[in-house]
Design a protein around this nucleic acid. Structure first.
Lengths: 335, 335
DNA sequence: ACAAAAATTTGTAGCGCTACAATATTGCTA
DNA sequence: TAGCAATATTGTAGCGCTACAAATTTTTGT
């Protein structure tokens, strides 16, 4: 071992372990990689030395030599609002069960997402899990050229790689219809822009269809950015009420925005749903504990994560690939 | 290039790019690694080919050959409650500014944390950012043997590697004193257990000191788990009121638990802070928007992240290492 | 025009591990 | 006891890149 290496765990390589255990480096390698090829007595001797010396195999060297990786990379737009908690939990569960590892990178803009994808490709991950765009214009061709399996969740028809998600338009219709059937006539719709915002884009057309079919105005529309928090709920409620004092319902893009709107109603002395009904989306924890509890769309994010990981790990099967998951309308107190 | 490799980006190596651009593989390497050693005309020719073919250098091979890495690994106990949003944003900012990359892994138990640390060591990351324990009993020696720089945030005196964080006991004293000065006499304290829970442990002794000094009872103590959400706020409020109907304040470990307790007060028709004052911790987004807004401790998590990354990247400087960051008491409506 | 210095390009050996093949050891049967 | 088959261990070449050194080309100065 030369002076050059800074990498050996504690400056150790398999050669050091082999010497200390009185076997060849190949046997050390087999102990870690194919333990059932090594007799137990030999293996115990090797592992004892490895543990004592704190040796960890160099994954980079192994990965380079073997030509395969057991690392899945996920790119998330934000961890600000718990939006991806269930999804990441699902990714983790499936990757762990399949003997893989999950690493995540945060990328808030399309440019950061492209850079993160490049890092993951440089690490030669076994697959990349994306969340709906907007993506950099180069991302799709870049990832396709790489040949690395890609699964995009919530991206719908324009997903990069294989698509996982539910029919967002159908969910939007269900929720809009519910508000109409509750007797609401002045319904505000909140759409989303910015990094990671594309997954919301199919909701507005569906909302418009249902409003049109009911003979109601679809013009009360405001925009928040995907990474905005509770404060955006306050802002849109203020703006809607300035636009239409008779506002009687708001369809929010996430439970966080909805909670923010509920807080503002409380400050204004408006009762929910008595004066204004407020619906959320995403079935976050807060929706179940808020007073009033939130009516919301449950997207089964955990299942989305499990299935995205499954598509990535089974990526060679070449089946149709796209995978549709369920959603449900969760009726609670707020709408 | 043999048939064995599955790794080349689009099956490409520097040799392919070199052939297409009419230069040597070493020149391709220099274009990516030391661009100012290559004349511009040559470099443009090489980069044009690389972009057209979608080539990304194999980081594993580069890392192995160079003996250094520009990847920092962070291990987080959970992304459920936005607790680490600011911290991760700070890590990201500093690593990006220093030309490094940040990858994160989620580890909910001490055993998972040890496994995540082993993966990061296998990837030969340049440094590992941890959050306070409880850690597996092997983690400390394991990481020390590896020689990889480690920074633990919120771990206090028992941190693995270099410690970053604020004086949690001092913050707890400030907050307890504030509640006492507001006239509260039956104060409930919520402590935390479970994965990632050790960072809360220094708060209870400080609370007890202040209560003792004020001649008040310090026996109203309940426990939530670190990964619990809003529902734990409801639970502890119910339990405190069963223990002590004259309860007039609750000191919660996070803004999430506090918000959950506020929601339960609303359901019970108790006014906050009129009937019961509720303080949070962590200065989460929700604390600023909740009605009433939450009195909380701001831990400057972003700064903690920046400084942890700085310690890791400057890891060779061998200075005292531990770094104390500020905190502040944010007085708002709830207490 | 020539020589020296500077800039650019290329060659070599090896980073730590492993797929595949070769060799050595062990156990069983006749 | 010898031979054969099965099991365990080891050897070889190379994965893709790069630190360092050597070779080549270009630029500068006289």
């Amino acid at each position: 071992m030369s002076e050059k290496s800074k990498f050996a765990s504690g400056k150790l390589t398999m050669q050091d372990i082999a010497r200390a255990a009185g076997v060849s480096p190949m046997t050390v390698s087999n102990c870690f990689r194919y333990p059932d090829r090594v007799r137990e007595k030999t293996r115990m001797a090797v592992m004892k030395v490895a543990v004592e010396l704190g040796y960890v195999p160099n994954l980079s060297a192994g990965l380079l030599a073997a030509g395969t990786s057991r690392v899945i990379g996920a790119v998330l737009p934000s961890i600000r609002n718990s939006s991806f908690f269930g999804y990441v939990a699902g990714l983790r569960q499936e990757t762990t069960e399949r003997g893989h590892e999950l690493i995540t990178m945060i990328a808030e803009t399309p440019e950061e997402e492209l850079a993160a994808a490049q890092t993951l490709l440089g690490l030669r991950v076994a697959g990349i899990a994306l969340v709906a765009g907007p993506h950099s214009v180069d991302l799709r061709s870049f990832l396709e050229l790489s040949g690395t399996p890609v699964a995009e969740s919530w991206g719908g028809e324009n997903a990069v790689g294989k698509a996982v998600g539910y029919d967002v338009g159908a969910a939007s219709r269900v929720l809009t219809r519910h508000l109409i059937e509750q007797g609401h006539r002045q319904i505000g719709f909140v759409q989303v822009s910015g990094g990671g915002g594309l997954r919301y884009s199919m909701r507005l057309p569906a909302f418009r269809q249902e409003m049109f079919a009911a003979g109601l105005s679809d013009s009360l529309v405001l925009t928040v950015r995907a990474a905005d928090g509770f404060a955006s709920g306050r802002r849109i409620l203020d703006e809607f009420l300035a636009l239409q004092p008779k506002l009687d319902a708001v369809l929010c893009p996430t439970d966080v925005v909805a909670a923010g709107a509920v807080f503002e109603c409380q400050r204004r002395g408006l009762s929910v749903p008595g004066d204004i009904a407020i619906s959320g989306w995403g079935d976050y924890d807060i929706g179940r504990e808020l007073s009033p509890t939130l009516t919301t769309i449950s997207p089964f994010s955990h299942e989305i994560g499990v299935n995205a990981a499954r598509l990535l790990i089974d990526g060679d099967t070449g089946t149709a690939g796209n995978l549709t998951t369920p959603f449900s309308l969760e009726l609670r107190e707020s709408a």
